[in-house]
Design a protein around this nucleic acid. Sequence first.
DNA 1: AAATCTCCCTGTAGGC
DNA 2: TGCCTACAGGGAGATT
Length: 271
Amino acid sequence: MPELPEVETTRRGIEPHILNRKIANVVLRERKLRWPVPAKLPANLVGNSVQSVKRRAKYLLIDMGNGTLMIHLGMSGSLRIVPKSALPEKHDHADFQFDNDKILRYRDPRKFGCILWIAEDLNQHPLLSKLGPEPLADEFDSDYLFALSRKRKAPIKTFIMDGHMVVGVGNIYANEALFRAGIRPTRQAGSLSKVKTRLLVSTIKKVLAEAIQVGGTTLRDFIGGDGEPGYFKQSLAVYGRAGLPCVKCGGILKEIRQGQRSTVYCGKCQR
DNA sequence: AAATCTCCCTGTAGGC
DNA sequence: TGCCTACAGGGAGATT
């Protein structure tokens, strides 16, 4: 599923194909996503050129000059560049056809993603205005997280997955970062020492940066690729490994549920 | 304010 | 083999 590294990989993959390119046509086959795709979207887009391709949290932000095309991949979405001749398949909900005979094609089987148009100031938009800092930005440091977490009783895993605190830390990377940092996911956020907080912050950054690096490998054959991350799976130490031995101590990994999400951890290595 | 719950959706896996 | 059900999950919005 697309986590922050996959969204960033997607951004880097599509940017060279669409930057400064003019949109010639837009086809919407399914408008019922997380929120309805605006019917006026084609009118906003056709004839305009892509000014920039950015990312905020897991939102892709395509600046069209007269507004911004905002796309979220949900948990099953993908964006790919395909030739104009490529026939749409099941779940290919939207095509953005460019003047170079390439199509930016959106697919999302579970329809948890969204395609929206933002005409006003991006920073004022309700989906973006309350987001925490980017995990890889300097702004996200141990002083910030330590101050924010004081007196907070929520489990640390839930806390770092909350987009108000820091964006882009999904279930997979929250599990992995907490394992690598040796922190039990159920611990109250406010109970972490300054030292542990520093370790957690640096570990989150490291895990995400590593995953983006691996995504970069996928990037090269992005056009022909199937859109699946694949590569980082082999470096997962806990996610999806419940009941299997811990890679550090050999103990059996436990699985619990926190906030409707599965958590896997080592009861011995994570305290 | 903070914490928790609900819901959107379909492919996949497991049971029989 | 095929049908049926449970489940996964990002994250906004509602509820406690």
